[in-house]
């Protein structure tokens, strides 16, 4: 066995250990698209709530009860289109790499995300039921951030930072009630776009 073989072998072992334990098929560009959907959704919601002529300033009207169904509809529409886009682009990326999208690492990733996501989702429903609407935006940001941090051990390490920043934004949103929509636009929109560009730049070029 010569030296080149040995170094080759060790390199192979390292890449296998990484490939077998991390799910790298999540597409960076899908992050950019998902962020854009969130921004569009936030803009639509904003116009619906405050119209075109509102000022960024003191809010004398918070979300009222009549607008809740429409807001929920926008949020779910953005969520479903985002999941669809993320799934489709991950599938394409996996196909290119000759892998399947449903493997032990993606299962581990979804399991890690499921607990914080389900907890946050149920908590949001409870808050909605109790008409504690002002806390929902921050709650969902915080729990989404937690699920990303949990997922980061099974995928790109950059996910951890996306998660931590979402948690910080969620906590800030709690401190500034009435401005939830800005924090949502920042957390689900701007951060996803920045994250997607970074991942695309680092791993997909």
């Amino acid at each position: 066995m010569n030296q080149k073989d040995l170094i080759n072998q060790i390199g192979q072992i390292r890449s296998l250990m990484e490939k077998s334990s991390k799910f790298m098929s999540i597409s960076g560009l899908s992050g950019v698209l998902i962020g854009s959907y969130a921004l569009i959704g936030a803009a639509v919601a904003y116009i619906m709530l405050y119209g075109f002529n509102s000022q960024f300033g003191y809010r004398d009207h918070y979300v009222n009860r009549e607008s809740i169904p429409a807001l929920l509809f926008i949020a779910f529409a953005v969520l479903i289109v985002s999941i669809g886009t993320g799934y489709y682009m991950a599938q394409q990326k996996a196909k290119k790499a000759g892998q399947s999208i449903w493997n032990p690492t993606s299962k581990a990733l979804f399991q890690a995300m499921a607990i914080p996501l389900l907890t946050g989702g149920v908590l949001a429903l409870i808050l909605l039921y109790q008409q504690n609407v002002g806390m929902i935006a921050s709650t969902l940001l915080i729990f989404y951030g937690l699920s990303l941090s949990a997922a980061s051990s099974f995928s790109f390490r950059e996910l951890r930072w996306l998660g931590v920043l979402d948690i910080v934004l969620g906590l800030l949103a709690l401190c500034f009630p009435g401005y939830g929509i800005y924090f949502w636009a920042a957390g689900f929109g701007v951060l996803h776009i920045i994250y997607g560009l970074i991942v695309h730049q680092r791993y997909e070029k």
Binding site: I13, L16, K19, S20, S21, P104
Partner: peptide, 25 residues
């Protein structure tokens, strides 16, 4: 080589199934 590769996957992961091993290797 194959045995060494199998062991590297099983050291990095708690468990792995036959088909996923086959796909990776």
């Amino acid at each position: 080589r194959v045995r060494l590769q199998i062991m590297s996957i099983l050291v990095a992961n708690e468990h792995y199934d036959f088909n996923s091993l086959k796909e990776l290797l």
